[in-house]
């Protein structure tokens, strides 16, 4: 269970983290093969395990600019099964749109993973369990969290590469907001905002740290993200077992400085590696795929020097 397997370890004691950057010019390439081959390099203990894929599904957006592209979700679904997972579930609890089926139908998720019953879980209406938070970065002390997430052997955060008008960027750590159930906290999950939005990200990930992250950066979103921004083709998938290192790498690809993003800077102390020298890059280099993202004027300070 991911909640008990959380790695709250001072980052200076951690070995370097590996992050893979793969080029994928569009969603038509063989993403399943690409992900299978890349995931194989990480030697994940997937055999016989239940893998939970947590995409970022926000809105019924047929253009798939806002949501993790279903082709990436489908490719990850297939790749983890090929790696020997006993079962793979796709699970999401959208924060604004209560009609989860409207989202997954609009993006045609079933075309990529097959019939949804038994494979897709709406975390907003899942059974919940009270979980004491392992960190106290925000005002939250405990959260009711979905049993499906708490019982999964491996949790994979599958976000979209986007700017965010409150947090700066939304990547694999911020994506974990979606595990907080609407049936307890509403739409939006306003308790997290009142407890301190960026600090809540730390508490959620300090308690249920994703075991792996795959970021859909084939087409990202710049400007007024995470909903009303502009599509930004970037042509990459970014993968790794350290979500902080993955998010830091993505941020650098976007031309932003991860240490200037409040929650990432703090995550770099206990949850994973932020500094470039502690991240072993596999595949492409950051410089070769760097695509500066436009940010709102209020976030111009986040731009890398």
């Amino acid at each position: 269970m991911s909640a008990s397997n959380c790695s709250l370890v001072p980052s200076f004691t951690r070995p370097p983290s590996r992050v893979a950057i793969c080029r994928a010019p569009d969603y038509g390439v063989d993403l399943s093969r690409l992900l299978y081959e890349t995931l194989s390099e990480f030697d994940l203990p997937v055999e016989g395990k239940t893998v939970l894929l947590k995409p970022n599904f926000v809105e019924p957006d047929p253009q798939n600019v806002i949501n993790t592209h279903p082709a990436v979700v489908g490719a990850a679904f297939e790749a983890f099964l090929r790696l020997g997972a006993k079962s793979v579930l796709v699970a999401e609890g959208p924060g604004n749109e209560r009609d989860t089926e409207a989202i997954v139908e609009t993006i045609r998720l079933r075309d990529h993973i097959g019939p949804l019953p038994g494979k897709f879980v709406d975390l907003n209406v899942d059974e919940v369990e009270r979980v004491a938070l392992k960190t106290r970065a925000s005002k939250l002390k405990e959260l009711y969290l979905p049993k499906t997430v708490l019982r999964a052997d491996i949790v994979v955060s599958l976000p979209k590469l986007k700017t965010h008008h409150w947090a700066g960027v939304t990547l694999s750590l911020k994506n974990m907001f979606g595990i907080v159930p609407g049936n307890c906290y509403g739409w939006p999950k306003n308790d997290l905002h009142w407890a301190g939005l960026t600090r809540s990200i730390l508490d959620i990930n300090g308690t249920v740290r994703p075991d792996f992250a795959i970021v859909d950066g084939i087409v990202g979103m710049e400007g007024n993200g995470p909903i009303q921004g502009i599509a930004k083709p970037c042509g990459v998938l970014v993968l790794g077992e350290d979500p902080v290192a993955v998010d830091a790498t993505c941020t650098r690809i976007m031309g932003l400085a991860p240490e200037r993003i409040d929650y990432l800077a703090h995550a770099g102390l206990l949850l994973g590696h932020l500094k470039e020298e502690n991240i072993r890059q596999l595949g492409e280099s950051v410089a070769s795929v760097k695509t500066p993202f436009a940010v709102l004027h209020e976030f111009r300070r986040l731009r890398a020097a």
Binding site: R98, C184, G186, W187, N190, D191, W194
Partner: peptide, 13 residues
């Protein structure tokens, strides 16, 4: 009205 005590008003509740 809010979704949960101590938070802001929202349209649905």
């Amino acid at each position: 009205w809010n979704w949960t005590p101590g938070t802001a008003s929202w349209v649905e509740p």
